[in-house]
Simulated scan of single mutants.
Amino acid sequence: MERHADVVMNVKQVAEYLGLSVGAVRKRCQRNQLPYHLNAKHLYFSKLEVDAALLNRK
Protein backbone atom coordinates (compact mmCIF):
# COMPACT_ATOMS: atom_id res chain seq x y z
CA MET A 1 0.00 0.00 0.00
CA GLU A 2 1.32 3.42 -0.94
CA ARG A 3 1.74 6.02 1.81
CA HIS A 4 1.32 9.71 1.11
CA ALA A 5 3.21 12.31 3.08
CA ASP A 6 1.18 15.23 4.33
CA VAL A 7 2.03 18.74 3.19
CA VAL A 8 1.40 21.83 5.31
CA MET A 9 0.29 24.85 3.30
CA ASN A 10 -0.31 28.49 4.15
CA VAL A 11 -3.28 30.53 2.89
CA LYS A 12 -1.61 31.58 -0.34
CA GLN A 13 -0.51 28.04 -1.17
CA VAL A 14 -3.93 26.50 -0.51
CA ALA A 15 -5.57 29.26 -2.56
CA GLU A 16 -3.32 28.39 -5.51
CA TYR A 17 -3.93 24.67 -4.97
CA LEU A 18 -7.71 25.13 -5.03
CA GLY A 19 -7.77 27.83 -7.71
CA LEU A 20 -9.34 30.37 -5.36
CA SER A 21 -8.42 33.82 -4.12
CA VAL A 22 -6.95 34.25 -0.64
CA GLY A 23 -10.14 36.05 0.40
CA ALA A 24 -12.28 33.13 -0.77
CA VAL A 25 -10.16 30.70 1.26
CA ARG A 26 -10.50 32.86 4.38
CA LYS A 27 -14.27 33.08 3.87
CA ARG A 28 -14.55 29.30 3.54
CA CYS A 29 -12.61 28.96 6.80
CA GLN A 30 -15.03 31.34 8.53
CA ARG A 31 -17.92 29.22 7.27
CA ASN A 32 -16.18 26.00 8.41
CA GLN A 33 -16.07 24.73 4.84
CA LEU A 34 -12.31 24.09 4.95
CA PRO A 35 -10.32 22.46 7.76
CA TYR A 36 -7.56 24.70 9.06
CA HIS A 37 -5.19 25.22 11.98
CA LEU A 38 -4.59 28.59 13.59
CA ASN A 39 -1.17 29.51 14.97
CA ALA A 40 -0.36 33.06 16.07
CA LYS A 41 -3.04 34.55 13.78
CA HIS A 42 -1.77 32.56 10.78
CA LEU A 43 -3.84 29.91 9.04
CA TYR A 44 -2.25 26.61 8.09
CA PHE A 45 -3.76 23.76 6.13
CA SER A 46 -3.05 20.05 5.87
CA LYS A 47 -3.24 18.93 2.24
CA LEU A 48 -4.65 15.57 3.31
CA GLU A 49 -7.37 17.24 5.41
CA VAL A 50 -8.29 19.65 2.59
CA ASP A 51 -8.49 16.79 0.08
CA ALA A 52 -10.62 14.71 2.46
CA ALA A 53 -12.97 17.63 3.10
CA LEU A 54 -13.44 18.22 -0.61
CA LEU A 55 -14.08 14.53 -1.30
CA ASN A 56 -16.58 14.20 1.56
CA ARG A 57 -18.50 17.29 0.46
CA LYS A 58 -19.74 15.75 -2.78
Rank of each mutant, 00 (worst) to 15 (best):
Q33H: 09
S46A: 03
F45W: 01
A15I: 10
H42M: 14
L18H: 07
H42G: 02
V25S: 07
N39S: 11
D6V: 01
H42Q: 09
V25Y: 00
V7P: 02
Y44G: 11
D51P: 01
P35I: 14
N39E: 04
P35M: 10
G23M: 11
R31Q: 09
E2R: 11
V22I: 15
R57H: 06
E49Y: 08
A24F: 04
N56Y: 05
Y36C: 13
H4T: 15
P35K: 07
D6T: 00
V7F: 04
V8S: 10
E49D: 08
N39C: 11
H4W: 15
R57W: 13
C29T: 12
L48Q: 09
K12P: 01
S46G: 04
L54E: 05
G19M: 01
D51M: 03
F45T: 03
L38S: 11
G23V: 14
D51V: 09
K41V: 08
K58N: 15
K41C: 11
V7E: 05
V22H: 08
C29D: 04
L18R: 04
K27Q: 12
F45V: 02
A5T: 15
R3D: 03
A53S: 00
L38Y: 05
K12F: 05
K12D: 08
V11Q: 08
R28V: 05
L48G: 00
Y36G: 10
H4Q: 15
N10L: 01
A15G: 02
K47I: 10
Q33A: 06
R3L: 14
L48E: 05
F45C: 06
R28A: 14
A53H: 01
A5G: 13
H42C: 13
E49Q: 03
L54N: 07
S46N: 01
A53P: 00
S46W: 00
R3C: 10
K47D: 06
L20R: 12
A40E: 13
K58S: 12
D51S: 08
S21F: 06
Y17D: 03
K27C: 04
N56E: 02
R28M: 13
V14H: 01
V8G: 05
R26K: 14
S46K: 03
K27W: 12
R28D: 10
E2A: 06
R26P: 03
S46L: 07
M1N: 10
V7T: 09
N39A: 03
S46H: 01
K12A: 15
V50T: 01
D51Q: 07
R26T: 09
H4L: 06
A52M: 10
K27S: 08
V14K: 04
V8W: 11
H42W: 03
E49G: 05
Q13R: 02
Q30L: 14
N39Q: 11
V11F: 00
H4S: 13
V11A: 06
D51N: 12
V14M: 04
V11N: 15
L55F: 15
R3T: 15
L43I: 08
L34N: 01
N10A: 05
L43Q: 06
C29H: 04
R31G: 04
V8K: 13
S46T: 03
S21E: 10
